[in-house]
Amino acid sequence: MTAAPPIPDPSLELRAVAHSYARTPALRGVSLTLHPGEVVAVTGPSGCGKSTLLHAAAGLLTPQAGSVTLLGRDLARLDETERAVLRRREVGIVLQYGQLVPDLPLRDNVALPLLLDGGDLAAARTAAHDALARVGLADAAGAVPQEVSGGQAQRAAVARALLTSPRVLLADEPVASLDATGGRQVLDLLLDVARRDGGAVLLVTHDNTAAALADREVRLRDGAVEHEAVLR
């Protein structure tokens, strides 16, 4: 008899996470597990707590109750600097509008995670250039964000998120500002983190065509999980 392969440790685990803004609850005891190689779509109507969940998963927000374990680390036990280092080295984050630094050329925007980590400028720029080439933006490396289209800026943000080959990718409405073709290109790049590299992808989206690409859907309603379904 062959032993079943061991179940890998979750890449991300939220347990009974609750958080309120002033007196308005945004999350009411949400639990969610994300495994290596898995893509989970978090869906639900506006204001259901999707973005708060993603911010809690990234350690950008400390929930008032519950725990978040990211790559085996309990985020509540890390200080702000340790969380920032964990994010920079192991986690890719893509937000709706790319969040690029306006004055920096795309090349340096993409190189930022390596530069902030004390990396050599020339090496960081070379890596950034390669990452931009992978998303089809080699020719735009010297342009600043306002000189490129929304789709190109978003692809640059993806290049930055993928620069360090993250084990966890967190994306919040990554294609909301893009047309169908541009959106699909960006989604394919993000999904490669799981499909090709075995990382875990958490995709917050209200776009059903994007959600349908996930392995599993977790639907929130009023800050709680209302429905969960395997899609593959």
Binding site: T209, H227, A229, L231
Partner: peptide, 16 residues
């Protein structure tokens, strides 16, 4: 409605 959504999402996944 939610179960129907899941069935539709699965079909969408196949199409894509």
């Amino acid at each position: 409605a939610l179960d129907q959504r899941t069935a539709h999402l699965r079909r969408m996944r196949e199409l894509q």
